[in-house]
Write a protein that binds this DNA or RNA. Structure first.
Lengths: 136, 136
DNA sequence: TTCGAGCTCATACTAAAGTACCAAAGTGCT
DNA sequence: AGCACTTTGGTACTTTAGTATGAGCTCGAA
């Protein structure tokens, strides 16, 4: 907060200085009005963009992209990934099996392999880790 | 894209018009230089903020805010919410108990109540629902 | 064709998770 | 004090999750 006040104080000072310089430069005829206005316009355009960027920086977006490279890095196969998505939807093994037309046994196998690859003890932990890796 | 070109064309036209008006107004002495520059500055500050906001709007952030109102709406108590956070961290009931200095039985009670309140059958489904409600 | 990887499924088991009760203690309100 | 609600914890039970192991199948690379 102290920093913000300091920055704004300096900004206002700089603007006032700019006004005075441009005013006397125009009166003495050494500077065209068009150029002065153009410079002012560009400066404030940049200030506007800067202020807005700063204010939006706090609510930083967590990059919703899926990290496909990480998936192959972890050697997670196609089927395993399907199962992982099922888990993230809150489905039981049985339900995932029904969805993918597989037996519950097969899902259990895939889940077990997933847990090893994600270094997790439970499916909920697998979800948390997968989110960290931006896999889901 | 066509819209962008149109908007920028109109913008440039408006700016040129502004320059001419201000130029002749100053020469005819009916307008002070300070005021002109001030107006230009404010206009471009707003334009800068506007441009930046538009450019960041595409990568819209999914509002990472927690919906506290929804939590009380669902009548989720303080303790239950603590347990929910534990679940979202991928912890087992035992681990949540250790963390909150409670017995596993107590955690089970809280989890059961949570599942009813969130209308979920499993803890993973509870997570998915809680995420939908922006509770976690 | 032999090999490895991936996918499928099964059995048998252990470990968690979840349900349905009950009950005591604390808290806040009237 | 009495009431409603939360929090805590227990027992007994069912269901789901997860492990270990084995086995058959397909497909592409060596």
């Amino acid at each position: 907060m102290k920093k913000t006040i300091l920055v704004f104080s300096l900004l206002i000072f700089a603007i006032l200085l700019l006004f005075q310089i441009s005013k006397y430069a125009i009166i003495s005829g050494s500077l065209k009005i068009e150029i002065t206005i153009g410079v002012i316009a560009v400066i404030f355009l940049i200030i506007g963009i800067y202020i807005n960027k700063k204010s939006l920086q706090n609510s930083k977006l967590p990059s919703t992209e899926i990290n496909h490279q990480k998936i192959s890095e972890l050697e997670i196969t196609e089927r395993e990934y399907e199962v992982l998505k099922g888990i993230s939807e809150g489905l039981s093994n049985k339900e995932i099996g029904d969805k993918l037309f597989l037996s519950e046994s097969t899902i259990k196998t895939h889940v077990s392999n997933l847990l090893v690859k994600l270094n997790a003890k439970r499916r909920t932990q697998a979800l948390q880790i997968a989110k960290d890796f931006q896999i889901i």
